[in-house]
Every structure is written in structure tokens, then in C-alpha cells.
Amino acid sequence: MMNLKRMVPLAMAMTLALAVTACGKKADSKEAGDGANAGKEKAVVYRTLDEIKESGTINIGVFSDKNPFGYVDENGDYQGYDVYFANRLGEDLGVKINYVSTEAANRIEYLETGKVDVILANFTVTKERAEKVDFALPYMNVALGVVSPESKVIESLDNWNPKDEMIVISGTTAEPFLIENYPNIPLQKYDSYATAKNAMENGNGVAWANDNTEVIAFALQNKGYTVGIPSLGSQDTIAPAVSKGNETLLNWINEEIKSLGNEKFFHANYEATLVDTYGLEFEDSLVVEGGQVQ
């Protein structure tokens, strides 16, 4: 009996120990599993081409306040150069389009988190951005430009008055370019095109640096302003972007851009959406057909 009494507590202790050990392994396994899943969820946030087709809808990120590239009209409809292109993508893919309003600073985030399938928001191709997203073939040329009031036209960034501030939009190429090349120029940063535009109109900065297409449009649409620096830095291109690794969608868009080039689609797009702003003078210099930069 003494041996039996001793064995029962011993057996219970061993059982408890095994249970604790088992629970510990299960917890470790769950944590490892969660970690692995979390890693996969973070890496695989995009929808493939087939998944988009199956859903019947594609989510495209565009600007809602950058006339004439992406904006919402008086009827609540998205319009502009990027939207004209997006409409054709949806048509040829055979799906409906869910437009998602985006700001410059969250274009990459929206792709990384799967909020959108494609970004068509005046997105300039840069090496740094290409490390986080995949760019398709380009459909437009672009450089930086600087707009300022006609009463004090800024024609050079040399010998800058350190008391004067330059307006920029966070997340645009103007911001890092000025920080790297003109560190003496104090920047006044805004999150959206609309707030930067208001700041310029309210005299909060002496000038505004942005894509030259946008500052030219601003000067043409708003009296009292001129683009004293029409081209600043390198010549770049604008292209659609998809989540990193989404090869099926990327390949389809590239083939679509090549095909559209055969019908001079982007020249037709320009003449439908940009000619009222820029006239025909800038058409051939801005438009890129079939992904082929001249």
C-alpha cells in the first residue's frame, strides 16, 4: 500500500509535468505558426490577376484633388488623365472599378497593405520606390518644377533667402530632392495637393515645388502665378504601380500598355483630359506611348 500511495502522487506529478510541457510546445508552435502566418500575410497582401477577375472588381488608387490628372467633378465622378487610363484597364480586364482616393504620402502604404491593387496617381518612378513596389511600363514623362507668384518669380534656387519657405507635398519626389540638393531651403510640408494649393494661394510660402506638369497646370488655372523653373533635376517617368511581387497583374498591365500604344491611346487620353490645360504644345513631350520613352 505504501508503494501504491507513493506511486499515485508520482504519477500525478509526471502527468502534470507532461501536460505543462505539452502546453509549452503547443504555445511555442502557435507562436511560431502565428509568426509564420504574419510573415506570409505581410508578404502576400496582393490579389493576383485571376483573383481580381474572379471578384469582378479592381481597386485602383487615384488622386481626388489633382485636376487634370485625378479629381472628383461636380457630379461626384472621378475624372482626369490617370482616371481615363484606369477606366480602360477596367474595361479591358472585364471588371468594375472601385476608385480609392489616395494622397501622395500613402501610395506605397496602400499597395503594401492590399488596400488597392494598382496605383494610378501621378506616380513618378524612383529607385527608392521601386524597392517597395513594382512599377509597370511608363505612360508619361515628368520632371520637377517650381511655381511662384508673378510679383516675385523664383527662377533659381541658388542664393536662397533662409527666411523663405518652399511648399512641398510629403511623399512626392520634390521633398527628398530639395533635402539632398538644397538643404538650406526650409520646407513647408503638406499632406495633400489641396492643402498645398491653399498654402500657395494664402502666401504661406514664396514658391511651390512639385511635378512640373502639376505646377504648370496650377499656374495656367490660377491667375497671378508663373512657373519660373519649368524643369528641375532629372527627367523622370510616371507609371502604374502594383504590390511587390504581384507578377501576374504587373505582366498584364505591361502588355496592356504595349497594346494601347499601337492605337495611340495615351495621345487620345491627353487630348481628352489635358489639352484644355496645356494645349497641344506639350503633348509629344509629355506622352509616352507603348512604354517606350523617347
Results as ranks from 00 to 15, higher is better:
Asn3Thr: 09
Lys5Phe: 15
Met7Phe: 15
Pro9His: 06
Leu10Phe: 11
Leu10Tyr: 06
Ala11Gly: 10
Ala17Phe: 13
Val20Gln: 15
Thr21Leu: 15
Lys26Met: 15
Ala27Ile: 13
Ser29Pro: 09
Ser29Ile: 14
Ser29Trp: 15
Gly33Ile: 07
Ala36Met: 14
Glu41Arg: 14
Ala43Phe: 05
Val45Ser: 11
Val45Arg: 08
Tyr46Ala: 04
Thr48Phe: 09
Leu49Asn: 01
Asp50Asn: 11
Asp50Cys: 08
Ile52Ser: 01
Ile52Tyr: 03
Glu54Phe: 03
Glu54Gln: 10
Gly56Leu: 02
Ser64Asp: 08
Ser64His: 08
Asp65Leu: 02
Asp65Thr: 09
Pro68Phe: 03
Gly70Thr: 05
Val72Thr: 12
Tyr78His: 15
Tyr78Val: 04
Gln79Ala: 10
Gly80Asp: 07
Asp82Ile: 04
Tyr84Val: 04
Phe85Glu: 00
Phe85Asp: 07
Ala86Trp: 04
Asn87Tyr: 01
Gly90Thr: 03
Glu91Arg: 12
Glu91Pro: 06
Glu91Phe: 00
Asp92Asn: 11
Gly94Lys: 07
Val95Asn: 07
Ser101Asp: 13
Glu103Ser: 05
Ala104Asn: 14
Ala105Glu: 07
Asn106Pro: 12
Arg107Trp: 06
Tyr110Asn: 08
Thr113Gly: 01
Val116Asn: 06
Asp117Trp: 00
Val118Pro: 00
Val118Asn: 04
Ala121Asn: 12
Asn122Phe: 14
Asn122Gln: 15
Asn122Val: 11
Thr124Ser: 07
Val125Arg: 05
Lys127Pro: 04
Lys127Thr: 15
Ala130Trp: 13
Glu131Pro: 06
Lys132Pro: 14
Phe135Pro: 12
Pro138His: 10
Val142His: 11
Val147Ala: 13
Val147Gln: 08
Ser148Leu: 13
Ser151Asn: 12
Ser151Ala: 09
Lys152Tyr: 13
Val153Pro: 08
Ile154Tyr: 05
Ile154Phe: 12
Asn159Thr: 01
Asn161Met: 11
Pro162Tyr: 10
Pro162Arg: 12
Lys163Thr: 00
Asp164Gly: 03
Ile169Pro: 06
Ser170His: 04
Thr173Pro: 06
Glu175Ala: 01
Leu178Lys: 05
Asn181Pro: 06
Tyr182Thr: 04
Pro186Ala: 11
Tyr190Asp: 01
Ser192Asp: 00
Thr195Arg: 09
Ala196Asn: 01
Ala196Arg: 09
Lys197Glu: 14
Asn198Gly: 03
Ala199Thr: 02
Glu201Tyr: 06
Glu201Arg: 11
Gly205Thr: 04
Gly205Tyr: 02
Val206Arg: 09
Trp208Cys: 00
Ala209Pro: 05
Thr213Arg: 05
Glu214Asn: 09
Ile216Thr: 10
Ile216Cys: 03
Phe218Arg: 00
Ala219Asn: 03
Gln221Ala: 11
Pro230Trp: 04
Ser234Tyr: 12
Gln235Thr: 09
Pro240His: 08
Ser243Met: 08
Gly245Arg: 01
Thr248Glu: 05
Leu250Asn: 05
Ile253Trp: 02
Asn254His: 09
Glu255Val: 00
Ile257Cys: 00
Lys258Met: 02
Ser259Thr: 04
Glu263Ala: 08
Glu263Tyr: 02
Glu263Asp: 10
Phe265His: 01
His267Glu: 13
Asn269Val: 05
Val275Tyr: 02
Asp276Asn: 12
Thr277Cys: 02
Thr277Arg: 07
Tyr278Gly: 02
Gly279His: 06
Glu281Asn: 03
Glu281Gln: 09
Leu286Trp: 14
Val287Ser: 06
Val288Asp: 03
Gln292Ser: 12
